[in-house]
Design a protein around this nucleic acid. Structure first.
Length: 501
RNA sequence: GUCCCCUUCGUCUAGUGGUUAGGACACCGGGUUUUCAUCCCGGCAACGGGAGUUCAAUUCUCCCAGGGGAUGCCA
C-alpha cells in the first residue's frame, strides 16, 4: 500500500521551526518510500485561526521549496483539505459515537478557571495537583442518554465528550518507541470531541480526517504521546484501523526546554529575514534527531529524501544550536555561484539603500564583480551590505588614527600611503600578481612589511580595517575612485603629522 | 501531585556484546595569508549511577537519579 502522510498545522501562528521539522520529517519519509505528502489545514480554533497565518504557511513552504501532493491549493481526491470546510463531517461522526454509546452529551458550563492561563507559572501545576484524579469529573456521563438527547435537540448548549473506558489498558506500538501501554484510568477523562460552537476539537477532527484521507503513518512530536491512547480508543469505537504512529523527539532550546521565542529566532520567516539560506536551514533541521550517512554533513533536500529512514531517528530530544546552523549557512553561501549569490544578496543590498531594488546595469555588474570577494566571508546574507558598502557608497575620509599600522606614526603612514598612491597610478589592479610584486618591492624599499604598506591604503579605500583582498577590491571599485580616496587620506595623514609635531 | 517518554564528548550524532568509542560544530594550539575570512594540520572532550545476565557490556534486564512532556470547549 502506498504510504500517505500529512502535515496538519493549525493556522494560529507563524510557521515555527519545530512544526516545520515535523513537516520535513513527514515529507522525507513520504519521498523516501515513494508515498504521498498531504497538507491539511486544521483551522478548528475559530478564535485563533487567521488568514494571515495561512499566507505565512504558504510563503514559508514556497521559500523552503518542498511541496505537497495533495492540499488546499493543489486539490486531490480526499478533499477538501481545510477542516472548516468539512464542518458537517465532524458533527456527523460525533453523533455516530453518541448513538453507539461511545460518547455523550455534556451540558456543563465551560470551566474558564481550568483554562491554562498564559501568565501562570509553576504554581499552576501545584494547583492542578488535585488528590483525586484530574481533568473533567465526568459529571454528564451519568445522564440518561435519551434525556440528554432531548435536551441537546431542544437547543440547549452542549459539547460531546468521548467515553474513555474506566478500567483496562490501551496500548499501541510506536514505530520509534515501541510498545506504549496506558491504563485507561490515566487517559484524559472524557475529552471534548465537539465543542459548543459545533466545531470539532483536534482529537475528533484528526482521527476522522486521518481515516477518511487514508493516512497510513502519523509522525508528530512526542508531546502528543499522551493523547495517542485517546485516539486509539476512538479508532476502535469507529471500528477503524489506526494509522501507524511515530512520535518524533522534541526540539529544545539551550536551556533544555521546548524551543520558543525566547531562545532566539523560531519563526521560519525570521530566519529568512536574517539572511539564512533555506538549504542550510533544511539541512540543519533535518539533522536534529536524525542521522543520514555517517561521515557526511552536507545534504540537499533530495539527498535527505533518498537517505531518510525511520530507523535513524533518535528517541532523545535535541537542542537547537544556532552556532552550528551558522556554520551550515556559511557552507551553503560558499557553494553558491557568483550569479546566485548576487541574486541572494541583492534584496539585502537594496534594503540597505546601496543599490536599487531593480539594480541598474552598472550596479548589477558591480555586484557580480564583488560576489567572489565576499563569498567566503559571509556568514549570513545580511552581512553583505557592510562588507560591500565601500563599492556603492562614498566612505568618509577616515580619521588618521584609523589608518596607522602598528608602531607607525602619521608621518610614516603618510609616506607609505603616498608611495602606495604612486604605485596605484602605475599598475593595473586587475593584474593581481603584478600588483603584489610591485607592492612587495616598494614595501621592502621602505623597510615596511607588506601589510603595513597596505593597511593605510585599505582603510583609505574601503573605509574599514577589515575588507576583502585589497587589489581585487580596488579593481572592483575602479582605480580612479580608489585614487581619489587615497589622495584625500594622504592629506588627512599629513595634517595629523603636522599637528602631532 | 499523577501519568508517559528520554539518557554517548559543551552541542548534533555514529555505534545494535569483544572498537585505541568514530565524525561534525564549538573551543584551544599550529600552518597558509594582505586585514578579516576561507582553507589545511593537530589537540581537548562522552557511554548519568547501582545492581544483575554473560567469558565479555556503551550495547540486554531491573532499580535509582536527572531531564523533558502531558494533564484545555489550543493544537
Amino acid at each position: 500500500m502506498k504510504a500517505r502522510v500529512r502535515y496538519a498545522p493549525s493556522p494560529t501562528g507563524l510557521q515555527h521551526i519545530g512544526s516545520v521539522r515535523t513537516a520535513l520529517f513527514n515529507y522525507l519519509f513520504a519521498k523516501s518510500v515513494g508515498g504521498d505528502f498531504i497538507l491539511r489545514l486544521e483551522d478548528t480554533d475559530r478564535t485563533r485561526s487567521s488568514d494571515a497565518y495561512v499566507k505565512n504557511l504558504y510563503d514559508t513552504f514556497r521559500w523552503l521549496g518542498f511541496y505537497w501532493d495533495e492540499g488546499p491549493d493543489v486539490g486531490g481526491p480526499a478533499g477538501p483539505y481545510v477542516q472548516s470546510e468539512r464542518f458537517a463531517l465532524y458533527r456527523e461522526h460525533a453523533q455516530r459515537l453518541v448513538d453507539m454509546d461511545k460518547a455523550y452529551y455534556c451540558f456543563c458550563a465551560e470551566d474558564k478557571a481550568a483554562k491554562k492561563d498564559e501568565a501562570a507559572d509553576d504554581d499552576a501545576s501545584a494547583d492542578a495537583a488535585s488528590p483525586s484524579g484530574f481533568g473533567y469529573p465526568r459529571t454528564c456521563r451519568a445522564l440518561d442518554p435519551a434525556e440528554a438527547g432531548k435536551r441537546a435537540a431542544s437547543g440547549e448548549p452542549h459539547v460531546i465528550r468521548l467515553k474513555i473506558p474506566l478500567d483496562g489498558v490501551t496500548a499501541f506500538d510506536d514505530i520509534l518507541l515501541g510498545r506504549i501501554e496506558w491504563k485507561n484510568a490515566d487517559v484524559n477523562p472524557d475529552p471534548v470531541l465537539l465543542k459548543s460552537d459545533g466545531f470539532p476539537t483536534y482529537h475528533l477532527a484528526n482521527v476522522v480526517d486521518d481515516h477518511l484521507m487514508g493516512i497510513t503513518h502519523v509522525m508528530r512530536a512526542q508531546e502528543w504521546i499522551p493523547s495517542a491512547p485517546l485516539h486509539i480508543i476512538m479508532y476502535d469505537a469507529f471500528g477503524w484501523e489506526p494509522p501507524k504512529l511515530c512520535h518524533l523527539p522534541m526540539v529544545l532550546g539551550e536551556d533544555g526546554h521546548k524551543l520558543s521565542k525566547r531562545h532566539g529566532a523560531t519563526a521560519v520567516d525570521e530566519f529568512r529575514k536574517k539572511g539564512y539560506l533555506e538549504a542550510a536551514l533544511i539541512n540543519y533541521v533535518a539533522m536534529l534527531g536524525c542521522s543520514y550517512e555517517d561521515g557526511r554533513d552536507i545534504f540537499s533536500l533530495d539527498d535527505l529524501a533518498r537517505l531518510f529512514t525511520m530507523e535513524h531517528i533518535n528517541k532523545a530530544p535535541a537542542v537547537f544550536d544556532y552556532v552550528k546552523l551558522e556554520w551550515f549557512n556559511g557552507q551553503y553561501i560558499r557553494m553558491l555561484s557568483d550569479a546566485e549569490l548576487v541574486s541572494r544578496i541583492t534584496p539585502f543590498m537594496a534594503e540597505a539603500g546601496l543599490v536599487a531594488a531593480e539594480p541598474t546595469e552598472a550596479q548589477a555588474a558591480a555586484l557580480l564583480a564583488a560576489a567572489p570577494l565576499v563569498k567566503e566571508r559571509l556568514k549570513y546574507l545580511t552581512d553583505a551590505p557592510d562588507a560591500l558598502r565601500f563599492l556603492f557608497a562614498e566612505p568618509a575620509t577616515p580619521p588618521a588614527a584609523e589608518m596607522l599600522p602598528k608602531k607607525l606614526d602619521a608621518a610614516d603612514a603618510a609616506r607609505a600611503l603616498s608611495a602606495a598612491v604612486g604605485l596605484l597610478r602605475a599598475v593595473d589592479p586587475s593584474d593581481h600578481d603584478a600588483c603584489e610584486s610591485a607592492f612587495r618591492e616598494k614595501a621592502a624599499e621602505l623597510g615596511l612589511k607588506l601589510g603595513d604598506l597596505l593597511m593605510p591604503l585599505r582603510v583609505a579605500v574601503t573605509g574599514t580595517k577589515v575588507s576583502p583582498p585589497l587589489f581585487q577590491s580596488i579593481a572592483a571599485l575602479g582605480t580612479a575612485k580608489a585614487l581619489a580616496r587615497a589622495e584625500r587620506a594622504v592629506l588627512a595623514l599629513l595634517a595629523a603629522a603636522e599637528e602631532g609635531r
